[in-house]
C-alpha cells in the first residue's frame, strides 16, 4: 500500500514537472506581455530570473493591442470559430456516423475520399480556391471565412474511429425498439462519445483559431480581420511592435485552454461506462 502511494506521489511529481516544461515558453510569453519589448530582448540572454519575470510591469502592450482594434479581430475569430464548431461538429458527426455505423454500398469509397481530403494541405489550394470564392461573390463575407473550416475530414475521421468502438448491440437494441437511424445517432452514439466530440471540436476550433492565409486571401476589410491577421499587422514596414504581438498571442492561447479546462469533466463519460466494448 505504501509503495503504491509512493509510486502515485512520484507519478504526480513527474506530471507536474512535465507540465512545467510545456508551460515555460508560455510563461515567457505572458511575462513578455507585461514588459516593454526592449526589456524582453535585453533579458533573454544571458540566463537570469528576469527571463520569466518582468522587472518593470507595464500594461502598455495590452493597451496597444486594444487600441489597434485587436478586440474586434478577436471577436471575429470567436464568432467564426464557434459557428464552425457548432455547424461543423453537427455535420461531421453525422458523416462519421454514416461511415462507421450505417451499412451501405460505397462506404469505403466515401471514406477514402474523406481521407484523401485531409491529406491535401489547405495552403496549397488556397489561392485557386480564393479565386473561386471571388467568382461566387463571397469575398469579404463571414461565410467565406467559415465555409472552409466546415468540411473537415480529420474531424470526421476521429469521430468515425470512436463510433466504431461503440458496441453494435446498443444500436441493434434501439432498432428493435423502433428507433430510426437518427434516433440511434442522437440518443445512443452522441452521448457515449463525448470525448471524441471534444477532440473533433478542437480540430475544428483550432483550424479557425489559427487561420491566417485564407482570411488574407478572401477578406480585405479591416473590420473582418481575424485575430492572427491582426497580429501579423503588428509587423509593419518601419515599425515592429513585439510587445503587442506577445500580448495578443498570449490572449489567443489562453482562451482555448480555459475552454478545455472547463470541458475536462466530460472526459470521463464514455463508452467505457456501458461496460462492454467491441
Amino acid at each position: 500500500m505504501i509503495i503504491r502511494r509512493v509510486g502515485r506521489g512520484l507519478l504526480t511529481v513527474v506530471a507536474i514537472l512535465v507540465s512545467l516544461l510545456f508551460l515555460l515558453p508560455v510563461l515567457w510569453l505572458v511575462a513578455s506581455t507585461f514588459r516593454s519589448s526592449t526589456e524582453t530582448f535585453a533579458s533573454s540572454s544571458p540566463l537570469n530570473w528576469n527571463v520569466l519575470w518582468p522587472k518593470e510591469f507595464t500594461l502598455v502592450n495590452l493597451e496597444s493591442a486594444v487600441n489597434s482594434g485587436f478586440m474586434t479581430a478577436l471577436s471575429n475569430s470567436l464568432l467564426v470559430a464557434v459557428v464552425t464548431v457548432i455547424v461543423g461538429l453537427g455535420i461531421s458527426a453525422a458523416a462519421a456516423f454514416a461511415l462507421a455505423v450505417i451499412p451501405f454500398r460505397g462506404r469505403t469509397v466515401t471514406f477514402s475520399i474523406v481521407v484523401l481530403s485531409f491529406l491535401v494541405p489547405f495552403e496549397a489550394i488556397a489561392i485557386p480556391l480564393s479565386r473561386s470564392f471571388s467568382d461566387w461573390g463571397l469575398t469579404n463575407t463571414l461565410i467565406a471565412l467559415i465555409l472552409p473550416g466546415l468540411g473537415n475530414g480529420l474531424a470526421v475521421f476521429t469521430m468515425r474511429q470512436f463510433f466504431l468502438g461503440v458496441p453494435h448491440s446498443l444500436s441493434e437494441a434501439a432498432h428493435l425498439d423502433g428507433a430510426n437511424w437518427f434516433r440511434v445517432f442522437w440518443s445512443v452514439y452522441l452521448p457515449l462519445t463525448r470525448p471524441a466530440l471534444i477532440g473533433a471540436g478542437l480540430i475544428l476550433f483550432l483550424f479557425q483559431w489559427q487561420a491566417y492565409l485564407w482570411p488574407i486571401l478572401v477578406t480585405s476589410r479591416q473590420e473582418l480581420d481575424l485575430a492572427p491577421v491582426a497580429i501579423a499587422k503588428a509587423f509593419g514596414a518601419f515599425t515592429t511592435d513585439y510587445g503587442r504581438v506577445f500580448a495578443e498571442t498570449a490572449i489567443l492561447a489562453i482562451i482555448p485552454a480555459i475552454v478545455l479546462l472547463a470541458l475536462q469533466r466530460y472526459f470521463v463519460t464514455s463508452v467505457a461506462s456501458t461496460g462492454s466494448k467491441e
Binding site: T139, I216, L217, S220, V229, F235, G236
Partner: peptide, 19 residues
C-alpha cells in the same frame, strides 16, 4: 496587407475584375 503576403494577394486580385 501584411508585407510578406503582399505579392500573393496582388497575384490573386489583379486578375479578377469584380473585386
Amino acid at each position: 496587407v501584411p508585407f510578406d503576403d503582399f505579392n500573393s494577394v496582388l497575384a490573386a486580385r489583379l486578375t479578377n475584375a469584380s473585386d
